[in-house]
C-alpha cells in the first residue's frame, strides 16, 4: 500500500504548505491596521484602503485555512458518542461523513466557480468607500479554498474507507502528536496518556 502513503504524504503536504504560507497573513492584518491607526492619529490622514484591505486579508486567510485545519483534525466535532466508538466504528462514521461531504463540497465548488467567474466578467469593484478596489481577486479565493478542502476531504475519506475495511496502511499522520495546548508549556505531555486526557466516554464512573 505504498501508493496510499505517498498520496497521503502529498495531500497532507499540500494542505500543510498552504496553511504555512497563509499564516503570514496574520502579520499582514496586524500591519495594515497598525498603519491605519498611525496614519489617522499621528499623521491625521486616515487611509482609504486599510479597512477593506484588512477585511480581504481576513476573508482570504480564513477561507484558505480550512484545508489546513482539516489536515490537523481541527474542525470541531462532538465526540460524546463518536469518541466512545471503537476505531473501526469511528471509521465507518467517517466514511458516511466524508463521502457525503465530498458530494456537498463538489456542489459548493461549482457554485463558487460560477460566483467568481461572474465577478470577473463584469470586472466587479467594491463600492463601500472611495477606494473602490476590484472584488474579483477575493471572490476567486473562494473556489480555490473550497477546492483545497475538497482535496483534503478526499484524503480523510480514503483513510476512513481503508480503516473501515480493515486494510492495513501506513498513515504518515499517525506519527504526529496533536494538541490544542501550547507544546512549550507541556514538555511532558508526550508521556501522558493522551487518549485518556480527552476521554469523555465514561462520565458516569464517579
Amino acid at each position: 500500500m505504498a501508493w496510499v502513503t505517498r498520496y497521503l504524504v502529498a495531500q497532507d503536504g499540500l494542505s500543510e504548505f498552504v496553511g504555512r504560507a497563509i499564516s503570514w497573513l496574520t502579520l499582514g492584518m496586524i500591519g495594515v491596521l497598525v498603519i491605519e491607526i498611525v496614519f489617522r492619529y499621528f499623521l491625521d490622514s486616515p487611509t482609504l484602503w486599510a479597512h477593506e484591505t484588512s477585511t480581504m486579508l481576513y476573508g482570504g486567510f480564513c477561507m484558505l485555512a480550512g484545508a489546513y485545519t482539516l489536515r490537523h483534525r481541527g474542525h470541531v466535532r462532538s465526540e460524546v458518542i463518536w469518541g466512545a466508538l471503537p476505531k473501526r466504528g469511528q471509521a465507518i462514521c467517517d466514511v458516511v461523513i466524508f463521502s457525503t461531504g465530498a458530494v456537498v463540497l463538489v456542489m459548493f465548488l461549482k457554485l463558487a466557480i460560477g460566483f467568481a467567474a461572474e465577478s470577473w466578467a463584469v470586472r466587479e469593484y467594491s463600492n463601500k468607500s472611495m477606494w473602490q478596489p476590484p472584488l474579483y481577486p477575493i471572490k476567486t479565493v473562494i473556489p480555490i479554498a473550497v477546492g483545497l478542502v475538497l482535496l483534503q476531504n478526499m484524503a480523510e475519506l480514503l483513510r476512513a474507507v481503508l480503516t473501515a475495511l480493515g486494510i492495513e496502511y501506513d498513515d504518515p499522520r499517525e506519527r504526529e502528536f496533536e494538541s490544542d495546548i501550547d507544546p512549550e508549556l507541556l514538555p511532558t505531555i508526550l508521556d501522558a496518556d493522551v487518549t485518556e486526557a480527552v476521554d469523555t466516554s465514561k462520565p458516569n464512573d464517579r
Partner: peptide, 12 residues
C-alpha cells in the same frame, strides 16, 4: 443601485 454598482454600470 449603490449596493450593486460594482456589478451593474449604472448602479451608482
Amino acid at each position: 443601485g449603490g449596493y450593486w454598482s460594482g456589478q451593474v454600470d449604472i448602479g451608482n
